[in-house]
């Protein structure tokens, strides 16, 4: 197991370097530059050239790459051109909300998706099963922002149950207790989390259902039933535990994908997270930020895949890695 882990970690290195190379290549060939978005007619061509050189010095690409990697190892990802702050600081500010959003959405999807998946597997062809099948189909077919705008209109504007945008009501927060502030954040997170979690809830439902179905058909379940075990015990202790294994391994993939998929949701609800920052960075050609965000998310995905494999090995003693 340990050798497998070490081998996998070592394998991540060339993959990550490959990713960085591709990203760097993209940045170098992007048209315009940070100065082109400063459309001030009073700036002469001479002044633009000076600013351009200061903001983005013209070094050969391998040297830039080298500098960036060395700096990154020391925790320095450069300066955001637009915000004039260290990229790490920028990422740090905004990754928190994205994390909260993704995490909440993940928990919600698991809490809803998995039990319903189990239910529909154990009671096939019942109303619950059919309803959940329809729901999961709808869930993976609905465009995110469509759903988001519908919810926004219905719950926030018409019914006034939830806030329109943002992560907290800051005016309120200044004079409120810690508990009140946390509740306020939670209240603001509900709608975005539901929207973000729609597709993952549907997925969890489907995967749990098929996994459970496969397990239930196994011989050892039949044995358990023959032994006279109560149906409940059979299902929960034996079938579920085994069925859940592939689901758990999915977590390793879901988390990075939720982080990057939050782009749409954050834009609709003005939730101050990474998604909005990345789109802004692309629009203003803020290369250090684009590079930083892409690199970080790619690394997280790679690590996530590794974690998924390891979890699988831990959870299922049948799996042996050499």
């Amino acid at each position: 197991m340990r050798t497998y882990l070490i081998r996998r970690v070592i394998q991540i290195i060339p993959v990550f370097l490959g990713i960085l190379l591709i990203l760097f290549f993209l940045m170098e060939h992007a048209p315009g530059g940070p100065v082109s978005t400063m459309m001030d007619p009073k700036l002469t061509a001479e002044q633009k050239a000076i600013l351009s050189e200061r903001l983005d010095p013209k070094l050969p690409i391998h040297q830039k790459f080298f500098n960036w990697i060395i700096a990154a190892f020391q925790g320095n990802l450069g300066y955001s051109i637009k915000h004039r702050r260290p990229v790490t600081e920028l990422l740090g500010d905004f990754i928190g909300p994205t994390f909260i959003l993704s995490f909440t959405s993940l928990i919600l999807s698991m809490l809803i998706g998995i039990p319903i998946g189990v239910l529909s597997a154990t009671q096939q062809r019942s109303l619950a099963d059919n309803a959940s099948t329809v729901f999961s189909l709808v869930g993976i077919s609905m465009p995110t922002f469509f759903f988001g705008l519908l919810l926004l209109k219905f719950f926030a504007v018409d019914l006034r149950l939830f806030p329109l945008y943002g992560m907290r009501d800051n005016l309120l927060a200044r004079n409120a207790t810690w508990l009140a502030r946390q509740l306020d954040v939670a209240w603001h997170t509900v709608l975005p989390a539901v929207v973000l979690g729609l597709a993952s809830t549907a997925s969890f439902m489907r995967y749990t259902r098929s996994s459970m179905l496969e397990v239930i058909r196994q011989d050892y379940i039949r044995t358990a039933r023959a032994k006279g075990l109560k149906e409940r015990v059979t299902i929960y202790r034996h079938a579920f535990r085994n069925a859940i294994i592939p689901i758990i391994t999915l977590l390793g993939f879901w988390i990075p994908s939720l982080l990057s998929g939050a782009v749409m949701t954050e834009t609709i609800f003005a939730y101050p997270g990474l998604g909005k920052i990345s789109v802004d960075a692309v629009n203003t050609r803020d290369y250090p930020v684009i590079l930083g965000v892409n690199a970080m998310l790619s690394l997280l995905t790679l690590v996530g895949a590794l974690v998924a494999d390891v979890l699988y090995a831990i959870a299922d003693p049948r799996i042996k890695y050499e």
């Binding site: 500010d93 905004f94 943002g166 800051n170 003005a270 101050p272 909005k276 920052i277």
Partner: peptide
Amino acid sequence: TDYAPNQF
């Protein structure tokens, strides 16, 4: 007196 980026 107070600034939270992208919030308020």
